[in-house]
Amino acid sequence: MKLVIGGFAQGKLGYVLNSCRPRECIVLDGSLSLSEEPGEKALVVNHLHSWIRECLLRGGHPEEEVLAFAERHPDCIWISDEIGNGIVPVDAFEREYRERTGRIQVMLAERAEEVVRVICGIGQKIK
C-alpha cells in the first residue's frame, strides 16, 4: 500500500501515474466503487478527501469503509489532499471533516509501506 499526500493542485496524480509506468492504472476519482477487478493493473484512489467528505455527508463511517477497501486491495495507491493546514473552520461539519481526514491519513500511513508528500509535482518520500 502506498499513500500520496500534498496540497491542492500539486501534481499528485501525475506523480503517481508517472511512478506506475509502464503499468496501466485504474483510477477511481473520489470513489471506492470498482466496476472491474484490477488484476495486473495498478489501483489508484484519487481525491480520497472528497470521498471522505461525501461519506460523512451521507452519515457513513469513512474509517471502516477505507479499512475494508484497503484489506480487499492491499496494493492500492491512495491519493489525498492535505487539508488540515489552515485556520480551524467556524463550521462544525468542516472541522469534523478536516480532523477525520487527517486521522484517516495517519491510519493509512501506519499501514502503508511508502508515504510520499508531493509539492510542485515533486515527491518527497517521508516513509
Binding site: 499526500i5 492535505e82 491519513q105 500511513a109 508515504v115 510520499v116 508528500r117 518527497q124 517521508i126
Partner: peptide, 18 residues
C-alpha cells in the same frame, strides 16, 4: 508531523528527499 510521520526540520536528523 505529517500523517503521523515526524519530519525533523531542525536538530540532528534532517529531512531526506526521495
Amino acid at each position: 508531523v505529517v500523517a503521523g510521520i515526524p519530519l525533523v526540520l531542525k536538530g540532528e536528523e534532517r529531512i531526506c528527499g526521495s
